[in-house]
């Protein structure tokens, strides 16, 4: 049991640190909840430290905060346009939440809440439902024209419309699975390689150790890129709902 509990999947297990039960629903405060809390605190601390002095010429932390603001703001403006700026706080929150979830999860002995499909699925489903509501409230039934771009010849439409409908409904699945698979694979790989370091010992252990080093760098990159991809795809879906074509 001991060997199994420290296998590559052990890191994904939830530990019920503060058991809570509300009406038969288990909402215990777990290690997952702790890292979600840490993501909030890290984001708050970053922006608190960064904007403490509010100087004309930014300090290092202030320029980091400004850079993030302009990066996400630019992403929303470029992909959705000015009408999309109303959703900028949401996209910024989404980006920071996933970014810190991914990056904090790379610390040894930490927990990656984005490696759990249910977390990603809730985020992706929320975006999917919100985008659909925004689309119908802005364009009414005309929003259905999203499935058939103007100028499509009728014979092509018979093939195109089912494909478009399918790709629309597959969005929350691909959005959540992409992040889940990336986080899961990276962490399992790190854990397995790290296990080889122990089993090979001080001599040949240097080979998997070098691999762990390289993969860790790669995973830092993946952590940032996946947060970006999640936010970017949300922007693209939002653009469909706001600007249609």
């Amino acid at each position: 049991m001991a060997a199994e509990s420290h296998g590559p999947m052990h890191q994904f297990e939830l530990q019920r640190w503060i058991p809570l039960d509300v009406g038969g629903l288990d909402i215990s405060y777990t290690n997952s909840a702790l890292f979600m809390t840490l993501a909030v605190l890290a984001t708050f601390s970053l922006f608190w430290v960064a904007t403490r002095h509010r100087t004309m010429v930014p300090s290092r932390w202030q320029s980091v905060a400004e850079l993030m603001y302009e990066f996400v703001g630019g992403m929303v403006k470029d992909n959705v346009g000015h009408a999309g700026m109303a959703y900028f706080p949401f996209i910024f929150t989404l980006f920071m939440f996933i970014l810190f979830g991914n990056v904090l999860g790379l610390l040894p002995y930490s927990f990656t809440f984005t490696s759990h499909i249910v977390v990603n699925a809730v985020l992706a489903l929320f975006i999917f439902v919100a985008v659909t509501i925004i689309g119908f409230s802005r364009h009414g039934l005309h929003y259905f024209s999203l499935f058939c771009p103007p100028g499509t010849p009728l014979p092509v439409a018979f093939v195109l419309v089912p494909i478009e409908i399918m790709s629309y409904f597959i969005r929350p699945v691909s959005l959540s699975l992409r992040l889940f698979a990336n986080m899961l694979a990276g962490h399992v790989l790190l854990k397995v390689l790290a296990g080889f370091v122990i089993s090979l010992g001080l001599g040949f252990g240097i080979v998997p150790f070098a691999a762990v080093f390289g993969v860790t760098l790669l995973e830092i990159m993946v952590a940032v890129i996946q947060a970006y991809v999640f936010a970017l795809l949300s922007c693209i879906y939002l653009n469909d709902a706001i600007n249609l074509h």
């Binding site: 288990d26 979600m36 809440f113 977390v119």
Partner: peptide, 12 residues
Amino acid sequence: TFASQIFWLVVT
């Protein structure tokens, strides 16, 4: 574990 994760996801 789903209920706990979803609950704390929404809260955080």
